[in-house]
Protein backbone atom coordinates (compact mmCIF):
# COMPACT_ATOMS: atom_id res chain seq x y z
CA UNK A 1 0.00 0.00 0.00
CA UNK A 2 1.97 3.04 -1.18
CA UNK A 3 1.18 6.29 0.59
CA UNK A 4 -0.48 8.08 -2.30
CA UNK A 5 -0.64 11.50 -0.68
CA UNK A 6 3.10 11.91 -0.32
CA UNK A 7 5.03 13.93 -2.86
CA UNK A 8 7.53 11.90 -4.84
CA UNK A 9 11.20 12.31 -4.22
CA UNK A 10 13.61 14.30 -6.34
CA UNK A 11 15.92 12.27 -8.61
CA UNK A 12 19.01 12.77 -6.45
CA UNK A 13 17.40 11.30 -3.43
CA UNK A 14 15.71 8.74 -5.63
CA UNK A 15 17.63 5.73 -4.46
CA UNK A 16 17.10 6.49 -0.79
CA UNK A 17 13.46 7.08 -1.50
CA UNK A 18 13.09 3.79 -3.38
CA UNK A 19 14.65 1.91 -0.48
CA UNK A 20 12.48 3.73 2.02
CA UNK A 21 9.39 3.01 -0.04
CA UNK A 22 10.20 -0.70 -0.21
CA UNK A 23 10.69 -0.84 3.56
CA UNK A 24 7.50 1.05 4.09
CA UNK A 25 5.55 -1.32 1.85
CA UNK A 26 6.86 -4.23 3.86
CA UNK A 27 5.86 -2.64 7.15
CA UNK A 28 2.45 -1.73 5.80
CA UNK A 29 1.92 -5.29 4.61
CA UNK A 30 2.84 -6.60 8.05
CA UNK A 31 0.56 -4.06 9.69
CA UNK A 32 -2.42 -5.33 7.75
CA UNK A 33 -1.99 -8.84 9.12
CA UNK A 34 -1.01 -8.18 12.72
CA UNK A 35 -3.56 -7.61 15.42
CA UNK A 36 -5.53 -9.02 18.30
CA UNK A 37 -7.61 -11.21 15.98
CA UNK A 38 -5.72 -13.55 13.62
CA UNK A 39 -5.85 -12.70 9.94
CA UNK A 40 -3.90 -14.54 7.26
CA UNK A 41 -3.76 -14.08 3.51
CA UNK A 42 -5.48 -17.40 2.92
CA UNK A 43 -8.25 -16.52 5.34
CA UNK A 44 -8.65 -13.25 3.51
CA UNK A 45 -9.29 -15.05 0.26
CA UNK A 46 -11.52 -17.66 1.86
CA UNK A 47 -14.25 -15.64 3.48
CA UNK A 48 -15.77 -12.17 3.57
CA UNK A 49 -15.22 -11.77 7.34
CA UNK A 50 -11.47 -11.31 6.90
CA UNK A 51 -11.88 -8.78 4.14
CA UNK A 52 -14.34 -6.86 6.24
CA UNK A 53 -11.91 -6.66 9.15
CA UNK A 54 -9.21 -5.54 6.76
CA UNK A 55 -11.28 -2.72 5.34
CA UNK A 56 -12.90 -1.65 8.60
CA UNK A 57 -9.98 -1.78 10.98
CA UNK A 58 -6.57 -2.86 9.69
CA UNK A 59 -6.40 -0.64 6.63
CA UNK A 60 -7.63 2.50 8.38
CA UNK A 61 -5.22 1.84 11.21
CA UNK A 62 -2.28 1.39 8.85
CA UNK A 63 -3.19 4.52 6.93
CA UNK A 64 -3.60 6.51 10.14
CA UNK A 65 -0.10 5.48 11.24
CA UNK A 66 1.42 6.43 7.90
CA UNK A 67 -0.35 9.78 7.72
CA UNK A 68 0.41 10.70 11.32
CA UNK A 69 4.04 9.72 11.05
CA UNK A 70 4.64 11.60 7.82
CA UNK A 71 2.84 14.72 9.04
CA UNK A 72 4.51 14.78 12.47
CA UNK A 73 7.95 14.35 10.92
CA UNK A 74 7.32 17.19 8.47
CA UNK A 75 5.95 19.40 11.23
CA UNK A 76 9.11 18.70 13.20
CA UNK A 77 11.30 19.61 10.26
CA UNK A 78 9.42 22.88 9.69
CA UNK A 79 9.58 23.65 13.42
CA UNK A 80 13.34 23.13 13.34
CA UNK A 81 13.72 25.60 10.49
CA UNK A 82 11.54 28.19 12.21
CA UNK A 83 13.31 27.94 15.54
CA UNK A 84 16.66 27.60 13.76
CA UNK A 85 17.46 24.70 16.02
CA UNK A 86 17.68 20.96 15.47
CA UNK A 87 16.51 19.88 18.87
CA UNK A 88 12.89 21.01 18.81
CA UNK A 89 9.60 19.54 17.68
CA UNK A 90 5.89 20.22 18.32
CA UNK A 91 5.62 18.05 21.42
CA UNK A 92 8.66 19.61 23.09
CA UNK A 93 7.87 23.30 22.54
CA UNK A 94 4.28 23.57 23.71
CA UNK A 95 2.46 23.05 20.37
CA UNK A 96 0.87 19.78 21.48
CA UNK A 97 0.18 20.99 25.01
CA UNK A 98 -1.34 24.17 23.54
CA UNK A 99 -3.62 22.08 21.31
CA UNK A 100 -4.69 20.05 24.34
CA UNK A 101 -5.46 23.24 26.28
CA UNK A 102 -7.57 24.50 23.37
CA UNK A 103 -9.45 21.21 23.21
CA UNK A 104 -10.05 21.32 26.96
CA UNK A 105 -11.39 24.85 26.71
CA UNK A 106 -13.81 24.06 23.92
CA UNK A 107 -14.93 20.85 25.64
CA UNK A 108 -15.70 22.75 28.81
CA UNK A 109 -17.28 25.85 27.30
CA UNK A 110 -19.17 24.22 24.46
CA UNK A 111 -19.51 20.49 25.08
CA UNK A 112 -21.69 19.97 22.01
CA UNK A 113 -19.12 21.43 19.63
CA UNK A 114 -18.55 19.53 16.40
CA UNK A 115 -15.25 18.24 15.11
CA UNK A 116 -14.60 21.35 13.02
CA UNK A 117 -15.01 23.66 15.99
CA UNK A 118 -12.75 21.47 18.12
CA UNK A 119 -10.14 21.40 15.38
CA UNK A 120 -10.24 25.16 15.08
CA UNK A 121 -9.89 25.72 18.81
CA UNK A 122 -7.03 23.23 19.04
CA UNK A 123 -5.24 24.76 16.06
CA UNK A 124 -5.56 28.31 17.40
CA UNK A 125 -4.34 27.36 20.86
CA UNK A 126 -1.49 25.36 19.37
CA UNK A 127 -0.58 28.35 17.22
CA UNK A 128 -0.55 30.61 20.27
CA UNK A 129 1.59 28.17 22.25
CA UNK A 130 4.11 27.76 19.44
CA UNK A 131 4.26 31.49 18.69
CA UNK A 132 4.94 32.24 22.35
CA UNK A 133 7.78 29.74 22.23
CA UNK A 134 9.29 31.36 19.13
CA UNK A 135 9.08 34.76 20.83
CA UNK A 136 11.02 33.26 23.72
CA UNK A 137 13.61 31.78 21.40
CA UNK A 138 14.40 35.21 20.03
CA UNK A 139 15.51 36.30 23.46
CA UNK A 140 18.03 33.47 23.69
CA UNK A 141 21.55 33.94 22.37
CA UNK A 142 22.19 32.21 19.03
CA UNK A 143 25.52 30.99 20.36
CA UNK A 144 23.77 28.77 22.92
CA UNK A 145 21.78 26.36 20.75
CA UNK A 146 20.97 23.89 23.50
CA UNK A 147 19.10 26.53 25.49
CA UNK A 148 16.36 26.47 22.87
CA UNK A 149 15.15 22.88 23.44
CA UNK A 150 15.51 23.40 27.17
CA UNK A 151 13.23 26.43 27.10
CA UNK A 152 10.83 24.49 24.88
CA UNK A 153 10.68 21.54 27.28
CA UNK A 154 10.01 23.86 30.20
CA UNK A 155 7.34 25.74 28.27
CA UNK A 156 5.70 22.46 27.29
CA UNK A 157 5.79 21.33 30.92
CA UNK A 158 4.15 24.56 32.08
CA UNK A 159 1.33 24.33 29.53
CA UNK A 160 0.99 20.64 30.30
CA UNK A 161 0.70 21.33 34.03
CA UNK A 162 -1.95 23.97 33.37
CA UNK A 163 -3.88 21.49 31.22
CA UNK A 164 -3.53 18.79 33.88
CA UNK A 165 -4.81 21.12 36.60
CA UNK A 166 -7.92 21.99 34.59
CA UNK A 167 -8.51 18.41 33.48
CA UNK A 168 -8.11 17.08 37.00
CA UNK A 169 -10.58 19.51 38.51
CA UNK A 170 -13.12 18.89 35.74
CA UNK A 171 -12.72 15.11 35.52
CA UNK A 172 -11.34 15.23 32.00
CA UNK A 173 -8.03 13.51 32.78
CA UNK A 174 -8.93 10.55 30.59
CA UNK A 175 -9.33 12.80 27.58
CA UNK A 176 -6.05 14.55 28.26
CA UNK A 177 -4.29 11.20 28.45
CA UNK A 178 -5.76 10.21 25.10
CA UNK A 179 -4.79 13.49 23.44
CA UNK A 180 -1.21 13.49 24.66
CA UNK A 181 -0.49 9.74 24.38
CA UNK A 182 -1.14 8.73 20.82
CA UNK A 183 -2.37 5.26 20.05
CA UNK A 184 -4.04 3.69 17.08
CA UNK A 185 -6.05 0.84 18.58
CA UNK A 186 -9.26 2.87 18.37
CA UNK A 187 -8.84 3.75 14.69
CA UNK A 188 -11.59 2.29 12.51
CA UNK A 189 -13.17 3.31 9.27
CA UNK A 190 -14.93 6.63 9.68
CA UNK A 191 -12.74 7.79 12.59
CA UNK A 192 -9.49 8.73 10.94
CA UNK A 193 -10.33 10.22 7.55
CA UNK A 194 -9.74 13.76 8.78
CA UNK A 195 -6.05 12.84 8.92
CA UNK A 196 -5.97 13.00 5.12
CA UNK A 197 -6.07 16.77 5.63
CA UNK A 198 -2.49 16.54 6.86
CA UNK A 199 -1.61 15.66 3.26
CA UNK A 200 -2.56 19.21 2.25
CA UNK A 201 -0.25 20.66 4.86
CA UNK A 202 2.54 18.30 3.87
CA UNK A 203 2.17 19.43 0.27
CA UNK A 204 2.20 23.07 1.39
CA UNK A 205 5.39 22.42 3.33
CA UNK A 206 6.93 20.91 0.21
CA UNK A 207 5.97 23.91 -1.92
CA UNK A 208 7.37 26.32 0.66
CA UNK A 209 10.47 24.24 1.32
CA UNK A 210 12.96 26.69 -0.19
CA UNK A 211 11.45 29.53 1.77
CA UNK A 212 11.80 27.62 5.00
CA UNK A 213 15.41 26.86 4.14
CA UNK A 214 16.06 30.57 3.71
CA UNK A 215 14.08 31.49 6.81
CA UNK A 216 16.29 29.02 8.62
CA UNK A 217 19.26 31.27 7.88
CA UNK A 218 17.79 33.92 10.18
CA UNK A 219 15.76 37.05 9.75
CA UNK A 220 18.53 39.31 8.44
CA UNK A 221 19.73 36.87 5.79
CA UNK A 222 16.16 36.06 4.76
CA UNK A 223 15.17 39.71 4.35
CA UNK A 224 18.40 40.30 2.47
CA UNK A 225 17.37 37.60 0.01
CA UNK A 226 14.03 39.32 -0.51
CA UNK A 227 11.95 36.95 1.57
CA UNK A 228 8.89 38.21 3.41
CA UNK A 229 10.18 36.73 6.60
CA UNK A 230 7.21 37.31 8.90
CA UNK A 231 4.81 35.83 6.40
CA UNK A 232 6.91 32.69 5.91
CA UNK A 233 7.17 32.38 9.66
CA UNK A 234 3.41 32.61 10.00
CA UNK A 235 2.84 30.04 7.25
CA UNK A 236 5.25 27.68 8.94
CA UNK A 237 3.53 28.19 12.26
CA UNK A 238 0.18 27.47 10.64
CA UNK A 239 1.44 24.19 9.22
CA UNK A 240 2.92 23.10 12.53
CA UNK A 241 -0.15 24.09 14.53
CA UNK A 242 -2.65 22.53 12.11
CA UNK A 243 -0.77 19.24 11.84
CA UNK A 244 -0.37 19.08 15.60
CA UNK A 245 -4.03 19.84 16.22
CA UNK A 246 -5.15 17.25 13.66
CA UNK A 247 -2.99 14.60 15.27
CA UNK A 248 -4.00 15.44 18.84
CA UNK A 249 -7.69 15.42 17.98
CA UNK A 250 -7.68 12.14 16.06
CA UNK A 251 -5.06 9.74 17.41
CA UNK A 252 -3.15 11.69 20.04
CA UNK A 253 0.37 13.07 20.16
CA UNK A 254 3.34 10.85 19.30
CA UNK A 255 6.36 12.42 20.99
CA UNK A 256 9.83 12.64 19.40
CA UNK A 257 8.77 11.66 15.86
CA UNK A 258 9.28 15.21 14.63
CA UNK A 259 12.59 15.41 16.40
CA UNK A 260 14.32 12.11 15.80
CA UNK A 261 13.23 11.43 12.22
CA UNK A 262 14.33 14.71 10.57
CA UNK A 263 17.64 14.62 12.43
CA UNK A 264 18.43 11.10 11.31
CA UNK A 265 17.41 11.80 7.72
CA UNK A 266 19.40 15.01 7.55
CA UNK A 267 22.49 13.25 8.84
CA UNK A 268 22.35 11.18 5.67
CA UNK A 269 20.68 13.42 3.13
CA UNK A 270 21.95 16.84 4.13
CA UNK A 271 20.21 20.10 4.86
CA UNK A 272 18.46 20.83 1.59
CA UNK A 273 14.90 20.81 2.83
CA UNK A 274 13.30 20.23 -0.53
CA UNK A 275 15.36 17.11 -1.11
CA UNK A 276 15.07 15.92 2.48
CA UNK A 277 11.36 16.50 2.93
CA UNK A 278 10.00 13.48 1.01
CA UNK A 279 12.48 11.24 2.78
CA UNK A 280 11.52 12.73 6.12
CA UNK A 281 7.88 12.03 5.35
CA UNK A 282 8.60 8.43 4.34
CA UNK A 283 10.83 7.78 7.32
CA UNK A 284 8.33 9.35 9.72
CA UNK A 285 5.53 7.21 8.31
CA UNK A 286 7.66 4.09 8.63
CA UNK A 287 8.84 4.94 12.15
CA UNK A 288 5.34 5.46 13.55
CA UNK A 289 4.03 2.35 11.81
CA UNK A 290 6.92 0.35 13.20
CA UNK A 291 6.27 1.71 16.70
CA UNK A 292 2.60 0.77 16.39
CA UNK A 293 3.53 -2.71 15.19
CA UNK A 294 5.87 -3.21 18.13
CA UNK A 295 3.11 -2.02 20.43
CA UNK A 296 0.72 -4.54 18.91
CA UNK A 297 3.16 -7.43 19.18
CA UNK A 298 4.97 -7.02 22.45
CA UNK A 299 2.16 -8.18 24.75
CA UNK A 300 -0.07 -9.71 22.12
CA UNK A 301 -3.08 -9.83 22.20
CA UNK A 302 -2.96 -6.66 24.37
CA UNK A 303 -1.45 -3.43 23.11
CA UNK A 304 1.05 -0.81 24.19
CA UNK A 305 0.31 2.67 22.78
CA UNK A 306 2.55 3.77 19.92
CA UNK A 307 3.34 6.96 21.85
CA UNK A 308 4.76 4.94 24.72
CA UNK A 309 6.88 2.82 22.39
CA UNK A 310 8.14 5.90 20.61
CA UNK A 311 8.73 7.71 23.91
CA UNK A 312 11.25 5.05 24.87
CA UNK A 313 12.99 4.64 21.51
CA UNK A 314 12.78 8.30 20.51
CA UNK A 315 14.17 9.53 23.81
CA UNK A 316 17.02 7.05 23.53
CA UNK A 317 17.92 8.28 20.05
CA UNK A 318 17.60 11.88 21.21
CA UNK A 319 20.06 11.36 24.08
CA UNK A 320 22.43 9.71 21.64
CA UNK A 321 22.10 12.69 19.26
CA UNK A 322 22.83 15.18 22.01
CA UNK A 323 25.78 13.32 23.46
CA UNK A 324 27.50 12.31 20.23
CA UNK A 325 26.94 15.30 17.98
CA UNK A 326 29.23 17.73 19.69
CA UNK A 327 29.79 20.94 17.83
CA UNK A 328 26.77 20.42 15.61
CA UNK A 329 24.54 22.28 18.00
CA UNK A 330 21.98 24.11 15.92
Amino acid sequence: MPPASLPTAEPRAGRHAALALAGLALLAGASLFVGAAPLSASALLADGEGARMLMLSRLPRTLACLLTGAAMAIAGLVMQMLARNRFVEPSTVGSAQGAALGLLAVTLVWPAAGLAAKMLAASLASLAGTAAFLAMVRRLPVTQPLLVPLAGLAWGAILGAAATFIAWETDLMQFLEIWLNGEFSGVVQGRYEILWLTGIFAAAAYLLADRFTIAGLGRDAAVGLGLRYERVLLLGLLIVAAVTALTVVTVGMIPFVGLVVPNLVRMGAGDNIRAALPLVALAGAGAVLAADLVGRLVIHPFEVPAATVFGVIGAGVFVWLIVTRRGHGA
Binding site: F87, L146, P149, L150, L153, V312, A315, G316, V319, I322
Partner: peptide, 12 residues
Protein backbone atom coordinates in the same frame (compact mmCIF):
# COMPACT_ATOMS: atom_id res chain seq x y z
CA UNK B 1 24.47 19.46 26.90
CA UNK B 2 24.40 17.72 30.23
CA UNK B 3 21.14 19.39 31.24
CA UNK B 4 19.46 18.47 27.97
CA UNK B 5 20.72 14.90 28.03
CA UNK B 6 19.59 14.62 31.64
CA UNK B 7 16.10 15.91 30.91
CA UNK B 8 15.62 13.58 27.97
CA UNK B 9 16.91 10.68 30.06
CA UNK B 10 14.19 11.60 32.52
CA UNK B 11 11.61 11.52 29.72
CA UNK B 12 12.93 8.13 28.66
Amino acid sequence: RMVLAGIVLGVM
